[in-house]
Design a protein around this nucleic acid. Structure first.
Lengths: 148, 148
DNA sequence: ATACTTGCAAATGATTTGCCAGTGT
DNA sequence: ACACTGGCAAATCATTTGCAAGTAT
């Protein structure tokens, strides 16, 4: 109904690896695609399409198209932290699930395994098998929940 | 940074109660506000602003303004199930947190208490105090997770 | 040579804002 | 009366689409 979460995560660690994945899927390796990949690789936090476009001097529409392509291949993913644009990150860096503090704005990335107990708790509570890949977990970080 | 989750939940069970809350805050009781409240009361699932506007024959902008007012007062809340418009519901009906099956589209509403163990698990895993009020928990319902 | 990609412009969907006429209090 | 609201039009933000020109294969 929403996104299709059935993309097999690919193994790659650099632009070269991602480029191979493109080739293997019969897609073309263009300068723009390399630039988008480089922008994502050089960022330590997820980026908006806008940020990628600026960082790489590319047209926003092309960036969106490429990001979508990368998501289809399982090279990238996007999350929503709140309102505002989706944020894109490569799906090759262990960390894939996010916590967002709506008070101080902190974004924390966790390895999926760290939230396994949470997913299990949801299973027990509601019988759902959930993923925290599309929406961040929103609340207060430890520091902010102490105050007031 | 995003929404301010610090609105005290109000006690009300019908349009009259909500109207009193408006009065107590010095806000005016207008036909449109009543209509928006009625639309929300008569719905069993959360509604988009669009649906409220159609159901009540009101201008979409006014509906958004009123829904925002209601949210500020703690009368209503909105959730996002995925992409697409936010969905609004009164915050007076036990059920306040949502699970969304991205395969069959099922929306399940839970009383906050039912997700307490989940919140606790997030606390243990990451030290965050999260709420599932703004984003639904997204995944597969029991039925859909069995298949395939 | 051909099919896939790009940039640019314009369309779309969700939500917000300006403004003035209308109306609760 | 006066400040708060409503409708309408237009603006804004995020994202998508159409299309002709450009390029990877």
């Amino acid at each position: 109904v929403t996104d299709a979460p059935d993309v097999t995560p690919l193994a790659f660690t650099d632009v070269g690896g991602a480029v191979s994945a493109l080739r293997e899927h019969g897609l073309r390796v263009t300068a723009s695609r390399r630039l988008v990949l480089e922008a994502l690789f050089s960022a330590e936090a997820p980026l908006s399409a806008e940020q990628v476009a600026r960082h790489a001097n590319l047209d926003l529409a092309s960036v969106y198209r490429n990001l979508e392509t990368f998501e289809r291949l399982g090279l990238a993913r996007h999350v929503h932290l709140g309102h505002g644009p989706g944020l894109y990150a490569l799906s090759c860096r262990g960390e894939r699930e996010y916590l967002f503090c709506d008070r101080c704005g902190e974004v924390r990335a966790l390895a999926p395994a760290e939230l396994d107990p949470v997913r299990a708790a949801v299973g027990r509570a509601a019988g759902y098998e959930v993923a925290f890949t599309h929406f961040a977990l929103v609340g207060r970080c430890a520091r902010c929940s102490e105050e007031r």
